[in-house]
Design a protein around this nucleic acid. Structure first.
Length: 245
DNA sequence: GATAATGTTAGCAT
DNA sequence: AATGCTAACATTAT
């Protein structure tokens, strides 16, 4: 469910909660959530797929995995088990199906913000440098590497590789620098488009490759295969996507 | 009703 | 010690 752009959307949605004090907590995890009681939210951040609620001296880290959800001032219909609810005098944040933990260290010590494609500190040159260190990796793995492209998920991977016409099993070190620049640019473009489409609730409509049967360019059937170190569903066209190896 | 999928990680085995 | 694999988590659309 949760690639980076969705978290950015949620982050924008709950900006009004900054400065609010937690008055009650419903906790169905092993987390010692009580420490947040009476605390005031000082900031809301994201690093890729990590959703970060800051309390000044510590941070709650939420990862939504595949099926996670955040509901604001209402419960998910139909009624589902709540992992954590943070309650305020007039409002509520309800988290479902997520992995929670606290971060004690300052976030700047924990996160490389330059890796987050949707961060203001995103640095494509840092990504290029990291890619140079893994020339033998396949491109479909590299795009899902959160240390390099924090926030990129499987759908964005499939869509971007289709758009730039790169076959997913291409080797990182065999792609020309020009092609990498194109991929980096498209990762950004697509992530922000994903965000806008998601806000309008129409993002599936724009999939050109992911979960599609035929290539829209040449009407050839897409190959569907489970590729990469931990195999993920990958769609590609053997006609228009070029293998660099 | 079964299946598969926008993801990670604890814990076990080697 | 380090690496690698699997199970586990859970929801929803097809």
């Amino acid at each position: 469910m949760a690639e980076g752009p969705l978290l950015v959307m949620w982050k924008e949605d709950i900006q009004p909660f900054i400065g609010k004090q937690i008055t009650a907590i419903e906790n169905n995890t092993k987390l010692h959530a009580d420490r947040m009681l009476g605390k005031t939210i000082t900031d809301i951040k994201t690093w890729g797929k990590h959703f970060l609620i800051c309390f000044g001296d510590f941070t709650l880290r939420i990862h939504f995995l595949m099926f996670g959800d955040l509901y604001i001032n209402r419960r998910k219909p139909p009624e589902k088990p709540v992992k954590l609810s943070l309650q305020f005098t007039d409002s509520e944040l309800v988290f479902y199906n997520c992995a929670l933990r606290f971060i004690e260290e300052p976030l700047n010590e924990v996160y490389d913000w330059s890796a987050d494609v949707m961060s203001e500190e995103w640095n494509p040159r840092a990504a290029i440098k990291k890619l140079k260190a893994i020339p033998d990796a396949v491109v479909c793995d590299a795009l899902l590497n959160q240390e390099i492209f924090s926030g990129i998920g499987n759908i964005i991977k499939n869509e971007v590789l289709f758009r730039v016409k790169v076959q997913p099993l291409s080797l990182v070190g065999k792609l020309p620098a020009k092609k990498w620049n194109e991929i980096l640019k498209e990762l950004l473009t697509y992530s922000y488009q994903f965000l806008e489409w998601r806000k309008k609730g129409e993002f599936q409509r724009h999939w050109q490759a992911n979960a599609r049967k035929l290539c829209p360019r040449d009407e050839v059937p897409f190959v569907k295969a489970y590729l990469g170190q931990n195999p993920r569903r990958t769609y590609y066209c053997t006609q228009c996507q070029v293998l660099y190896n």
